[in-house]
Design a binder for these strands. Sequence first.
DNA 1: CCCGACGGTGAGCAAGCGCTTAGAGCCTGA
DNA 2: TCAGGCTCTAAGCGCTTGCTCACCGTCGGG
Lengths: 212, 212
Amino acid sequence: MSAADETADRAAGGEQPWDEVTPEAARKLLIAAVEAFAERGYHATTTRDIAGRAGMSPAALYIHYKTKEELLHRISRIGHDKALDILDAAYAGAGTPTDRLADAVRSFVRWHAGRHTTARVVQYELEALSETHRTEIIGLRRQSDAVVRRILEEGVEAGEFDVPDVPGTAVAVLSLCIDVARWFNTRGRRTPDEVGALYADLVLRMVSAQKK
Amino acid sequence: MSAADETADRAAGGEQPWDEVTPEAARKLLIAAVEAFAERGYHATTTRDIAGRAGMSPAALYIHYKTKEELLHRISRIGHDKALDILDAAYAGAGTPTDRLADAVRSFVRWHAGRHTTARVVQYELEALSETHRTEIIGLRRQSDAVVRRILEEGVEAGEFDVPDVPGTAVAVLSLCIDVARWFNTRGRRTPDEVGALYADLVLRMVSAQKK
DNA sequence: CCCGACGGTGAGCAAGCGCTTAGAGCCTGA
DNA sequence: TCAGGCTCTAAGCGCTTGCTCACCGTCGGG
């Protein structure tokens, strides 16, 4: 990946992903699976389809992954880690709660728009995970929720936010951002950056203390 | 259904649904399908599962529906009609744009929470529809989008709203409401009414002109 | 009193599914 | 040079899937 690509990619909401997946064949299969799952859904995707997209035979899949479900779990786990990283980075950032909430929403939305293929799988295929894997992932999601709630609480304490219902608003903010993965379309008019900016503005309006 | 049930149901966001589906066996199958699709998703649901929930043999399904996909289409069509009705009613209502937007969000969210089983199928199983059926349904969704956009425009004209990006905000508002179907849980702390009220408040904050 | 229509069942077909296995090709190190 | 270990494939197994078909009970009208 060139330096220019890296810059463009970071602007789109994430660095080159899937680097952590090795060897290359395993990564190619995983990327093929992300595309297929995002297009048709986990259950409508066949192992033959995944292997075909990766230019390999169906049996090749089982050298790198025990089951089709393990593939989904790897995708879901990496994606949730990334999403949580984004929120944590915004929480740890400098500035007022207002700045940090705007930053969190902006970068979180940018990722869901720019990587909407991945995000769609990560956010909407939880039910297909095994019991064990699902509870693991749900733990990560609770952490995301906690980060947003904490930013809101700190904003309220600082007198910057007026939020009567912090847990409810945290759910709404996260829900708003996550659902970008469902409707966002690369062929649409907006770039991930633009959607991120729009959403950051909308969320700030939702929580900011009214000047009367 | 008793009068008390009807009142409780209307409060939950919709009158007794599926009345339009006859005969009774067809309705029982359809209700069973809604439950199964909402729980596991369309592709993970078998015709044997649907028939089993309805207390019938697998073959019975094909007396009332040509294919499994036709069942999904009937559900999706009826659900989208209902959702559009709710928005239209709010649009046609009395009061200022502020009142009507609050009403739209409140009742739309109440439906997505109270009937989240149905709503989940309606909102998240579009991809499983056939090409023809999907384009039909997408038309209905565009109408919903147009209604919200029109309320926003009228509010801006009336000077009640300050919305720099009307189409983008309309998408965000609808997205926020729709995603309730994904996370809402009957065993959670909030009633559909409470979520509706919270969301109506949040949306009004998103669009209302700031008093400075 | 019988008859056709209707709504239902039990059994099962063809196709496609996730996954396995036997073995081929190829790289690596002694 | 070649043995041992990886990676990958061709073939296919056992099972489930959406859907069909021959047949059956029930019931209102002539």
